[in-house]
Amino acid sequence: MTDHTLLSTDESLPKIAIIGGGLTGLLTATLLERAFIQSTDIQSTDQSSIPQITIFEKSRSVGRLATRYRTDSQTGKNWQWAFGAQFFTAKTPSFQQFIAPWLETDLLQPWCAEVVELTAANDNTESSDIQHKDEWGTAQARYISTPKMTSWGRALADDLQHTNIKFKTRVAPLAQYPQNQTDDKTELFDESGNSLGCFDWVICTAPNGQALELMAESGFTESANIAKPKMQACYTLMLGWDEVQSLPATLTSQTPSRWDVAYVNNSPLDRIFIEHQKPAHNDLLPSVTIHARNDWSETHVDDDIDTITEQLLQAAQHALHWDDETAPRQVDCHRWRYAATIVDNNEALGILVDPQHQWVVSGDWCGQGNIESCYQMAVETVQAIKQLT
């Protein structure tokens, strides 16, 4: 077990702000709480020793493991799309140990998907070519959250005992309003200039484009490094059908065999995921999530969303080969402006720490841009606070 000892019992506990309620923010709060509890052996009734952690989240929910659904008025059943991260891996022993409790409850489950390589049809071919590529097993498992990808983030938030989450609160850039210099604390403000309080530590877990805006002209000593990781966009297309019988043949188990994930060639599309075949998803109406290629998405990141939807629908039709009778009934499209982290030479940046101000800039983009990186950056943040407090 990693030693997260933070403070001795005779030291006062710092007041900590976390900007962003995504997985990095939630995991950071979780590990900070554990560190405080471990270092002080506090009891829940010992109010004087309870750490003061506040998460400021600009949206109305947490987790960033995004799920979208639509309910069919006739059947009452849902289409459901994991339109953000589809799965995650746990390659390090510490992260494997961390997620073990949720695996025991089946909130997290391995996804043993059948994976194919799909070369989309073009003007010279009538149907796509589908070839077996891989079978995801438990040796290097891919995990999903059930019944929705948002479920784990909400479980993490619910398990927090000493953290206050303030939703629909957008923190203003740190240099926008005069700072309260009392006791070397940082005063945060919302966009309207209302004070959000004074904090000993401020941890920013926003994507690096937003982190740059928050830290601009603030005196953050690591500002130049925020822009080093390059992030690309991603468009996600979400399709739904009334019943399995109305699916195009490319999505049925007979052509050529049952598959769950397709890596797509010869297309703006990158990967296709069949949602209703995932573990604990049997009650869903046929639902398919399609991620566009990151380079294509970045090139078209500012295009009109309706135009993008039309282009991706055309590409999906070439890949899945539907006609009027097998066309999807539900169509939706989402733009992720900051989706993929481009890591040069596989060298992760790591968290950025300003010891003088006691500010930390963190996020999955400081690592490999995946969910395990959220955990790793949370561990680094706790270690940094431990060393500097």
Rank of each mutant, 00 (worst) to 15 (best):
F273H: 15
H276S: 15
E298A: 10
T309Y: 00
E298S: 14
Q277T: 14
L312W: 04
D302H: 12
I290A: 04
V301G: 00
D302W: 01
H276M: 03
T307V: 11
L285Q: 09
P286Q: 02
T307Y: 08
A280Q: 13
L285T: 06
A280T: 05
D303K: 12
K278Y: 07
E275R: 07
V288W: 05
D303L: 07
T299L: 13
T289D: 07
S297Q: 06
I274P: 11
H281M: 14
P286M: 00
P279C: 13
E298Y: 13
D303V: 09
L285I: 06
I305G: 05
E310M: 05
E275K: 05
D302V: 07
S287F: 01
S297E: 08
S297N: 07
H281T: 05
D304V: 08
Q277G: 08
I290R: 00
I274N: 11
P286Y: 03
D283V: 00
R293T: 12
S287M: 09
W296E: 06
F273R: 07
W296Q: 07
A280L: 12
D303N: 13
E298G: 03
N294W: 14
E275C: 11
E310L: 10
Q311H: 09
D304C: 10
T307Q: 13
I290D: 03
S287R: 02
D295Y: 12
D304E: 12
P286C: 00
E275Q: 15
T289S: 11
H291N: 09
F273M: 11
F273N: 08
H276V: 01
S297T: 08
I308F: 02
V301I: 11
L312C: 06
N282H: 14
E310K: 15
L285V: 03
P286L: 01
V288M: 03
D302A: 08
I305Y: 07
I290N: 06
T299V: 07
I308L: 02
D306Y: 10
T307S: 13
L285M: 10
Q311V: 05
A292P: 01
Q311W: 04
W296H: 06
N294T: 15
D306P: 00
Q277Y: 13
N294D: 11
H291M: 00
P286V: 00
D283G: 14
T299W: 08
N294A: 12
I274L: 15
I290Y: 04
T307N: 09
P279Q: 06
T307K: 11
E275W: 02
D295A: 11
Q311E: 14
T309N: 09
R293F: 00
H300T: 05
Q311P: 01
N294C: 10
T289L: 04
T289W: 02
H281D: 10
L312Y: 05
V301T: 10
P279I: 12
S297Y: 04
I305V: 15
L284A: 04
H291F: 05
